[in-house]
Amino acid sequence: MSGTSMDGVDGVLVDISPASGGASSLRLVQRAFASVDLPQALRDELLALNSPGDNELHRAALAANALMQVYAQCVQQLCAQAGLAPADVAVIGAHGQTVRHRPGLFDGMGYTTQLVNGALLAELSGIAVACDFRSRDVAAGGQGAPLVPVFHQALWQSGAGFQCGSGTMAVLNLGGIANLSLLQPGRTPVGFDCGPANALLDGWCQLHTGQPYDADGRWAAQGQLQAALLQQLMAEPYIQQPPPKSTGRDLFNMEWLQQQLAAHPGMAPVDVQATLTAYTVQAAAHHLRTSAPDARRLLVCGGGVRNGEIMRQLAQALPGVIVESTLAHGMDPQAVEATAFAWLASKTWLREPIDMTAVTGARGPRVLGCLYPA
């Protein structure tokens, strides 16, 4: 998995098999975890490809090839850790790097674009590759994202050994974009992107401190929340839009942020960081209160879980809700999304359809992803 934060490639090697709890249940054993940094030149190119530019098709193809080289390194590290040969692994789930995400727009269908070269990764690794998971959902009228809520339900409400008790709960993934999964026992899960997270926080921090991210939220904690700016950010139409919905850097990017700041000249950069941190929290809290007011537990995963200021503010913004890392329930927060795509790859491998109707708005269950044999 290489997400919207573009900070690296996370990989897991897992055994996945059905559990005794029914068709949606699973037994999952993590065998290895690895994280490989993206070379700075590749990261810069991937960021640039999020916006229109010269010779995009050529540059995108080469960037996809370079990204597969990093994916292959991650696969090699995973196999080495677990003491396995490529022949021991059934399939790789390769998400690729999202550079455009515009479902439902332009021609009524829109598109989503992840830079990935499944054929090349299969050649480099000697393992079958499942990829392009989002396109079929968009073709079926869905948003194409988020795809993880069904996995979250199978993991934490299925008898897989990761239970969090009864009642409604939610999972908040804080990557470049924040997304929520709302899980109610006996009901189909609901999920949607709820606003920006590290995409803006990291970009602003890099611009003004030279650091790639705000470690533990310490810089934001030194600033003062700017209420007028926060109110303006919360008025962004996407925040008020009802689900199903998804977003990305197509909307929440540094150009969008500069447009918002134009009405607030002279604001101290540290105060902007403090306000962006509050925006991440308040957007997520708003969506949880409006979409699942009975939720009493929020599990947090993704890179943002390491931001202590975000975690502190989430607990403060959601009185009566237990806010905790997914690590408290058996899953490394950095590994959750990669594990989700391993699970999706297993579904592609078995040609099992997934019902994303209540999450993305797709017209019905579909087999997601395409498969490149080893």
Rank of each mutant, 00 (worst) to 15 (best):
R249S: 03
Q259K: 02
V9K: 02
N179D: 12
I354N: 02
G330R: 05
Q313D: 00
L257D: 00
G118A: 05
T4Q: 02
L261E: 07
W156S: 10
G165P: 05
V272I: 13
P18F: 15
A362S: 05
R27T: 15
D193P: 06
A32W: 08
A227T: 00
A128M: 09
G304W: 01
L350T: 14
M1N: 06
L124P: 09
G118E: 00
R296Y: 13
G210V: 14
P103A: 11
Y213W: 11
L207M: 14
L257S: 00
A295Y: 03
P52A: 07
D44P: 02
R249H: 05
A235N: 14
Q241C: 15
F341A: 08
Q316W: 13
M254P: 01
Y238Q: 02
Q211W: 13
V367I: 15
G302M: 03
A130E: 12
V367E: 09
L368S: 13
M356C: 06
A220T: 07
G302C: 06
R297K: 09
G330A: 09
L120Y: 01
A283Q: 05
G104F: 05
T277A: 09
G161R: 12
H286D: 08
K245Q: 10
G118M: 01
A41M: 12
M234I: 03
G161Q: 12
T209W: 03
G108K: 11
D44F: 03
H95R: 08
E56K: 00
M254G: 01
R249F: 01
P243M: 07
D54G: 07
S158W: 03
A130Y: 13
A41Y: 10
M267Q: 08
E123R: 11
A278H: 04
D294V: 04
R312F: 12
G217V: 00
N65L: 15
D332M: 04
I127Q: 03
L49R: 04
F341T: 03
I354P: 00
L257K: 01
V150S: 08
A154L: 06
A160P: 11
F133C: 04
P373Y: 10
G175W: 02
A199S: 15
L350I: 10
A66I: 06
V270G: 09
V359N: 00
V75H: 02
H58E: 14
M356N: 04
G126K: 07
L233P: 10
G3A: 12
A284P: 00
D202L: 14
L67A: 02
F151N: 01
L344P: 03
R366V: 12
Q184I: 09
Q73R: 14
E56A: 02
A63Q: 04
P243L: 05
G175L: 05
G175M: 06
L78T: 02
A48T: 03
L105V: 12
S181P: 01
P353Y: 07
P237R: 10
C74V: 11
T168C: 15
Q143F: 05
R218I: 11
Y238E: 01
V129I: 10
Q226M: 08
Q260N: 07
M6H: 05
Y71F: 15
H287N: 11
A292G: 06
G159W: 14
R136N: 14
L314Y: 07
P319H: 11
M331L: 07
C79N: 06
P149L: 05
C370S: 15
V89N: 03
Q258I: 01
L28F: 12
V129Y: 03
R249E: 02
T348R: 09
A60M: 04
P146K: 04
A130H: 13
F192R: 02
A274S: 12
V150E: 07
